[in-house]
């Protein structure tokens, strides 16, 4: 622990960066698992069962590892930014509880279906629960993300004070929820084109393009709504810091759609992931240095420097373990291009 080597202001920002990396990883990995569940719910047509099988096969080995990024985020929040965690726990009491119910039902139904199928012969009910929970959870998570940016959640002078139970449900939240869901669905469908073949792949390509259109419309809607509802966010999103990143993210959108149309699925996966990462990054830069606009910043809600320093020191050592393990996991299950149409 060498707190002197860094100005103490830097520690909260570094911890914030680690939190942001968790958000990004969760969005493109965990988000795709929610998207998979969404496609499971809406699987239709003659190949619906094949769709579900492909989704189950793609998620099975990785969904729990992907889920841990969310746990990371929460732990970084309550260790590094306890004041913000405490405030959000009160302000987002109901959406967080619903998220937890969604996470519980999604995970439970998925494993019940995957491992209980042979013994119970019952799949439809669990599939339905799995799908419905996969739809609801990203809706709520998107809304929570909106709530911390919109400026609707205000810290009372004497915390902890009760906060109106529906304060989080701003117009921005109402559009960012569906936006999150459509992005998750888009990612999932793009990823699934790489893990399927033949007509099933065509189905997922079509679904990916459909989700792309919906996500595009909702993104434009979100931008306009920030202009009207959260001018501070609009100013930042279009400003010199976040603007260029958002612009590149927006430009990647047609590129990923074109590569899908051309059947260049690996490229589409890279572009789609990059697009989502850049847009989220743009949002994060626009939000910086606020955790909850406008009252809680990284600095004013930070834990003492000793804690932040200890937390940050775990990262390189932890990643030394995690990165090779994650690489191995994805190499074994995602490395081969499963286009053989098995």
């Amino acid at each position: 622990m060498e707190p002197d080597t860094l100005p103490s202001e830097a520690l909260p920002h570094l911890a914030g960066l680690v939190a942001l990396l968790s958000v990004l990883a969760y969005a493109v990995l965990g988000g795709a698992d929610f998207g998979g569940g969404t496609w499971d719910l809406f699987a239709s047509g003659p190949r619906a069962d094949e769709h579900r099988a492909a989704i189950g096969r793609a998620m099975g080995p990785v969904w729990e590892a992907n889920h841990v990024w969310l746990i990371f985020l929460i732990i970084i929040l309550f260790t590094g930014f306890p004041a913000a965690f405490g405030f959000l726990s009160i302000a987002l009491y109901w959406p967080f509880h619903l998220v937890l119910a969604g996470i519980a039902l999604r995970g439970a139904a998925f494993v019940f279906r995957a491992h209980g199928q042979a013994a119970t012969g019952w799949t439809t009910g669990w599939g339905w629960v799995f799908g419905a929970a996969s739809v609801i959870t990203p809706l709520l998570l998107g809304a929570c993300l909106a709530a911390v940016s919109s400026g609707e959640l205000r810290l009372e002078a004497r915390a902890p004070a009760p906060i109106a139970p529906l304060a989080w449900l701003s117009p921005l939240a109402l559009i960012m929820g569906p936006l999150a869901l459509s992005i998750c669905s888009y990612l999932a469908a793009v990823y699934l084109t790489l893990e399927t073949g033949g007509e099933v792949r065509e189905d997922f390509r079509r679904r990916a393009l459909g989700a792309w259109v919906v996500a595009g419309i909702l993104s434009i809607g979100t931008l306009f709504l920030t202009y009207a509802e959260a001018p501070h966010l609009w100013a930042e999103l279009t400003g010199p810091r976040a603007g260029p990143i958002v612009a590149v993210g927006i430009l990647l959108a047609p590129a990923s759609a074109v590569s899908l149309l051309q059947g260049r699925f690996s490229l589409a996966r890279i572009l789609a992931t990059g697009q989502v990462l850049l847009l989220l990054l743009g949002w994060a830069i626009a939000q910086w240095p606020y955790l909850v606009y406008p009252d809680l910043t990284l600095v004013n809600s930070a834990a003492p420097p000793a804690t932040l320093s200890a937390l940050l020191w775990t990262v390189p050592f932890g990643m030394l373990l995690l990165v090779p393990a994650l690489w191995f996991l994805f190499a074994v299950f995602k490395g081969r291009n499963e286009t053989g149409g098995r």
Binding site: P61, F78, A303, L322, A325
Partner: peptide, 19 residues
């Protein structure tokens, strides 16, 4: 928090290798 953070790495490893 530090205990939970370390636990999260352990849990991550557990989830990866269980997969």
């Amino acid at each position: 928090g530090l205990a939970f953070a370390l636990e999260a790495y352990a849990f991550f490893i557990e989830a990866i290798f269980l997969g």
